[in-house]
């Protein structure tokens, strides 16, 4: 049991990192009361997901997917394209989230979710 766990951690460390990053990011988003830190947590969660995609594309001895005769095997290009698109989506989300935070700060003078809940009377 411990041996197989050891093997998983050493050979599949990218996936372990994916789980850790996503879980820490998600926890930060839920537990931290500061809005900007919540957004950082959300970014971390998404970065973990990107890492998962990139790790899934890797193969031992693979080269960049520029097809030439006798140059294979290649790593899978599709997950890279997906992550590129997802990064763009993530950047836009961060921008919208920060814009809303600025709006809230100028209205209520605080960036803490607990203080905002108190002011707004949210249940």
């Amino acid at each position: 049991m411990t041996e197989s766990l050891f093997a998983v951690v050493t050979t599949r460390h990218a996936y372990v990192l994916f789980v850790l990053l996503s879980a820490i990011g998600l926890y930060m988003m839920i537990a931290n009361e500061h809005l900007v830190k919540k957004i950082i947590g959300l970014n971390m969660f998404q970065t973990g997901v990107f890492l998962f995609f990139i790790a899934s594309a890797y193969r031992v001895g693979g080269s960049a997917p520029i097809v030439e005769a006798g140059n294979g095997p290649y790593v899978s290009p599709l997950p890279h394209v997906i992550v590129l698109t997802a990064i763009v989506v993530g950047v836009s989300l961060t921008a919208v989230g920060l814009a809303l935070s600025i709006r809230l700060y100028s209205e209520y003078g605080t960036l803490r979710a607990d203080a905002l809940r108190e002011v707004i009377g949210d249940e």
């Binding site: 959300l42 998404q46 989300l93 809303l100 935070s101 709006r103 209520y108």
Partner: peptide, 19 residues
Amino acid sequence: GQAAYGALKYLFLGTTGAS
């Protein structure tokens, strides 16, 4: 301001859902 707070809450949960 309340709408902005509601939207931000939606952003956190909606993005988590999409991720």
